[in-house]
Design a binder for these strands. Structure first.
Lengths: 179, 179
DNA sequence: GTCTATAAAAAGATAGAC
DNA sequence: GTCTATCTTTTTATAGAC
């Protein structure tokens, strides 16, 4: 609490960025230290192992998701629209943390997989009161998952994620279907 | 064509299985060779490098996707229902190839990312004639992506992918929304 | 808190026997 | 076609100076 060391945060930022831009394989301790502007020894003072580094990023995700669910509950446009609109990558900290966790999970990290499932459960609880039934709930969550999946695949490459008017039309279509 | 060597296929199977079960990190040449029941030298006779191994799996994906799109076009239950129902993991070869490619893509493989985007384009073309507009097309594709994303996250763990009656209800809901 | 140097293991790949 | 042995590089981690 209260002010984590700056170098520590820079290391986490660098790890996250490498995961997003170049994938799990490229995110070695060496590359992370270089990107963060510290030596390997400096990195290992803050995170004693790669596992600790991953745990640091997942803890960051946990906090961001909690805040996100709070905002979702009180969103003026409604929880469903909020959820879908925030599922397309804007580069904000939550987006970044989720993509990074997704990379780790697919790399084989069990804790990352568990963190993503937990995230999905929290979203599910927040959306449930706003939809008609189970199928409607599944629909909203799956469209959101689909958006994140495509965001994760793109990473730079222009892809098939709808934005602007296309996104608005999609949100309207989903809202009509689930209400 | 005409009968690929058996050991070669066993190696690809082992690579695929390791990717699915334990993620990209665990799928080393050594582990693959062991799982396929050949030596490292034996493996390297069939695939001269890790890159060649990945290309082999992506080629397998390409063929399976072509067949799938053909089936989709002529599916008696309609292309949309076919697409959604086959997006939940049943362990068939196409499912497996897609999860494996997804793991590679998130590990940082550019060819795997390109192969998945290409796959999505073919599906998009097959679905487009069956839906009202752009938003409806996005909806179907994103629900399918969402299903695959969750399939990929689970890998053994019981997860939130709808099956049985829940899946039927979801398919009905989507069909009502997009028709 | 941060660095350099170095160890220890694992990964990808080569050479050559059978 | 398949094996064993070996080399090189990379990756994670430790030790100890500053």
């Amino acid at each position: 609490m209260s002010r984590p060391p700056l170098a520590r945060e820079r290391v986490l930022d660098a790890f996250e960025q490498l995961l997003i831009d170049e994938g799990e394989r490229a995110a070695t301790m060496d590359a992370i230290a270089r990107a963060a502007g510290v030596s390997k020894g400096g990195l290992l003072y803050h995170f004693a192992s790669k596992e600790a580094l991953e745990a640091g990023l997942l803890e960051r995700l946990r906090v961001l998701v909690e805040e996100d669910v709070e905002r979702m509950r009180s969103a003026p446009e409604g929880a469903v629209a909020y959820m879908l609109r925030t599922s397309v990558m804007h580069g904000d900290p939550l987006d970044r943390a989720i993509i990074a966790a997704s990379r780790m999970a697919q790399g084989g990290s069990a804790p990352a997989g568990a963190a993503l499932r937990r995230t999905r459960e929290l979203w599910e609880e927040a959306i449930r009161p706003h939809v008609r039934d189970r199928a409607a709930l599944d629909l909203v969550l799956l469209v959101s998952d689909g958006l994140y999946f495509n965001n994760a695949l793109e990473a730079g490459v222009p892809g098939p994620v709808p934005t602007g008017d296309d996104l608005s039309a999609l949100v309207a279509l989903v809202e009509r279907a689930v209400r």
